[in-house]
Simulated assay, not measured.
Amino acid sequence: MHAAAHTKNIRVGSGGIMLPNHSPFKVVENFTLLEALHPGRIDLGLGRASGTDGWTAWALQRSREALAANDFPEQLDHLLSFFSRSFPTTHPFSNIRPPGDPSLVPVYRKEREINDK
């Protein structure tokens, strides 16, 4: 937010939010707020790694069992559904409306390194 507040034209955003360490809803709240303050200039990068050692990863989670969860696809689906307000009506989160504009903040997801050699 500091970089966006002190510039007028450059795009700013995260190098990579490690989604396993964050609630998809909270990520949407934060980035829709940034987008509202700096329209068209905010980028959201996502990753699936814990981004740290095991002890710190555990400290970031609410339980030790969460460390073993491989729910990145579900987290990503939730995040995109919160942004687009497109949960199926039968989904438990379908009535949750995050604050801010429902337009999608650009999301960049790196699948893997590709070696062209």
Rank of each mutant, 00 (worst) to 15 (best):
M1G: 09
H2F: 03
A5R: 03
A5F: 09
H6G: 02
T7E: 06
K8R: 12
R11N: 06
R11Q: 14
R11M: 06
V12C: 10
G13M: 08
G15T: 13
M18K: 14
M18S: 06
P20S: 04
H22A: 03
S23R: 07
P24K: 02
K26F: 11
K26M: 02
V27C: 08
V27N: 00
E29T: 05
E29H: 15
L33Q: 02
L34E: 03
L34C: 10
E35L: 05
L37C: 06
H38P: 09
G40T: 08
I42G: 06
L44C: 07
G45Y: 11
L46A: 15
G47E: 13
R48P: 00
G51R: 05
D53T: 06
D53V: 01
D53M: 02
G54F: 07
G54E: 12
W55N: 05
W55M: 02
W58C: 04
A59K: 11
A59F: 12
A59N: 07
L60V: 01
Q61P: 00
S63W: 14
S63C: 06
S63L: 15
E65P: 10
E65S: 10
E65Q: 07
A66L: 12
A66S: 06
L67N: 10
L67A: 04
A69N: 01
P73Y: 10
P73S: 01
E74F: 14
Q75I: 00
L76D: 06
D77Q: 05
D77T: 12
D77L: 13
L79W: 00
L79A: 00
L80P: 07
S81N: 09
F82N: 13
F82P: 11
R85Y: 02
S86N: 15
F87C: 01
F87A: 07
P88N: 09
P88D: 14
P88S: 14
T89R: 15
T89K: 11
T90E: 14
H91E: 11
P92S: 05
P92C: 01
P92Y: 13
F93T: 12
S94M: 10
N95T: 13
R97I: 15
P99C: 03
D101G: 05
D101Q: 15
S103H: 12
V105I: 05
P106D: 10
Y108R: 08
K110D: 03
E111H: 06
R112D: 00
R112K: 11
E113C: 00
E113P: 05
N115M: 03
N115R: 06
D116T: 12
